[in-house]
Every structure is written in structure tokens, then in C-alpha cells.
């Protein structure tokens, strides 16, 4: 298992608004504290696909190219709660190579936020 360099990404409320606009996903759990808490969430949460996209950035970096990702996916296990302040929250992406052959590398990816795993069963297959 080769460990890959951990990468950190900061997510703020402004990022969520920007992602909502760019993706067309306007579910209010991603921008309204009132709606988010009313459905039992601890607060406004990041779009799962935004967190996944941040993990993809880390994998692109490890793979040495944005177009090397062949297969990519995860379960959204815990929400990334984004506070209403200017600092936001930090998402950390770590990875290790779990399998490798001549043309494919499989990377087991862990994505945590304040020490808690937020994406589960995450795996990326990249062109070697």
C-alpha cells in the first residue's frame, strides 16, 4: 500500500451557493439553516457531489492528470456541515494505492471532515 500525500480543501457557505448555481441543485438543505435543521440535519450541509468533486481533485493530483480517472465513486455517509462564518470547514482527502497493474491503479480514498469520515466505500481507478 503506497500512501499518497493528504490534501485539504476548505468549504464555505459561499462555495455552496456557487455550487448550487453551477450545478442547478438548489435543494435548500444546502443553503437554508432553517430547512436543514427542520429535516433533522445538524445545519446546512455541502452537496455530496461537491465533496466528491473535491476528492476528484485530490485523485487528479495523485494520478498526474485530470483525464486519468476511469472509475470514481463513493457513498455519502455523513454530511459535511458548513458553518455560517468566513472560515468554513476543512475537508481532508487521503489515499493509498490498493492495487496496481500495468495500466490501472486502484486508489482507496478516505475523505474526512473534522476527523469524521464523510464519504464511504470510496474508490478510484486511474490509468497508470
Amino acid at each position: 500500500m503506497t500512501e499518497l500525500a493528504a490534501q485539504q480543501f476548505t468549504v464555505t457557505r459561499a462555495d455552496l451557493v456557487r455550487y448550487a448555481g453551477a450545478s442547478g441543485d438548489f435543494n435548500p438543505i444546502h443553503w437554508s439553516e432553517r430547512v436543514a435543521t427542520s429535516v433533522g440535519l445538524p445545519g446546512v450541509i455541502a452537496h455530496g457531489m461537491l465533496t466528491l468533486a473535491l476528492a476528484a481533485r485530490a485523485v487528479e493530483e495523485w494520478a498526474g492528470g485530470a483525464d486519468r480517472i476511469v472509475e470514481f465513486g463513493a457513498k455519502f455517509t455523513k454530511p459535511v456541515v458548513v458553518p455560517d462564518d468566513d472560515r468554513g470547514v476543512v475537508v481532508e482527502v487521503t489515499g493509498s494505492v490498493s492495487a496496481e497493474d500495468d495500466d490501472r491503479r486502484t486508489i482507496a480514498v478516505k475523505v474526512t471532515c473534522e476527523g469524521v469520515g464523510v464519504l464511504g466505500a470510496m474508490k478510484a481507478v486511474v490509468r497508470a
Binding site: G48, M49, L52, E71, G73, F76, P79
Partner: peptide, 10 residues
């Protein structure tokens, strides 16, 4: 509703 997961092969 909440997203559960997403896995894609390109």
C-alpha cells in the same frame, strides 16, 4: 431525501 452515493465509469 438525501443523495446516497454515486459511482461512475468514464
Amino acid at each position: 431525501r438525501m443523495a446516497g452515493g454515486e459511482s461512475t465509469t468514464f
